[in-house]
Design a protein around this nucleic acid. Structure first.
Lengths: 139, 139
DNA sequence: TAAGAAGATGCAACTTCGTTGCAAAATATT
DNA sequence: AATATTTTGCAACGAAGTTGCATCTTCTTA
């Protein structure tokens, strides 16, 4: 684990620092997307707010994580699959937000269907966010 | 116009006040979705920040407007079609965000395609946000 | 249509969120 | 191991959003 995280950072030409490793471990240790606040809390408030902000920005720029828009004004972040490259995100999967437990997950196996835009519009990215009750909460 | 806005407010059992009327006029006078800040500016900063926040909250709760999640941490608001009722939004159209002019519009005529969720998930709402270049900017 | 009840507004104060500059510390490079 | 490069944490700041409360506006009904 340590190893593969180091690899990932090296591949992205980033120095291996404690905060980066810890934050990546956090992402790898569970399946949900995380908001900035979650990360601060779950790392035990060990790192400065500013460090967390900057770390997320760097990961975003390097294509290690991607953002998921929400309608509660709190962007969430999730790991990208291998396919993502620096500056270019290729995730076209559906995101699921649970109204019960609040978790946000990537449904990697569900591809966003193509749609036909009105004349004159050019699309460069499509987001699809399904909300409802997740598998865990439905039981 | 005045008349129909009054009607709308009455139908929602809301008192007819200057700020509510002015903010609704703003929404009706142009096709784009508006962020909180836009509304403050476009009403000539005539109303207190707090009033704008509260007005939007009330409109949301009454099903007069709906939110559009964005990935820049600024929720946008747009008018609902007649179909929306108090507490229940029925808009299932696609939203378009222009990367050039920044405008957010509802593509009322484009319906979100149905998708098949993994077993155990129940969907109650689907959002689809397409970003790219809008008709105006493409010219 | 005037008076009282109900509701909305604006102000002040506060919290949370996100950003920037800079010195100190950690990491990388030779 | 020494130096160059990055990253971190702190302090300070501005923007965004919330709450309580007194005042003003809108609604109700007699």
């Amino acid at each position: 684990m340590e190893k593969s995280i180091d690899q990932l950072l090296k591949k992205s030409r980033l120095s291996i620092t404690e905060s980066r490793v810890k934050i990546l471990e956090l992402f790898f240790s569970q399946p949900d997307a995380l908001a900035h606040g979650d990360i601060e809390k779950k790392t035990g408030e060990k790192f400065d707010r500013v460090t967390v902000y900057r770390t997320l920005q760097v990961f975003l720029a390097k294509g290690i994580i991607h953002t998921i828009p929400t309608n509660d004004n709190s962007i969430r972040y999730a790991l990208c699959r291998e396919a993502c490259e620096e500056g270019h995100h290729h995730d076209n999967h559906v995101h699921f937000v649970c109204n019960d437990c609040g978790s946000t997950t990537c449904l990697e196996e569900i591809t966003i269907p193509a749609i036909k835009l009105p004349k004159g519009y050019a699309s460069s990215q499509v987001e699809m966010i399904v909300s409802g009750i997740c598998r865990k909460c439905k039981k």
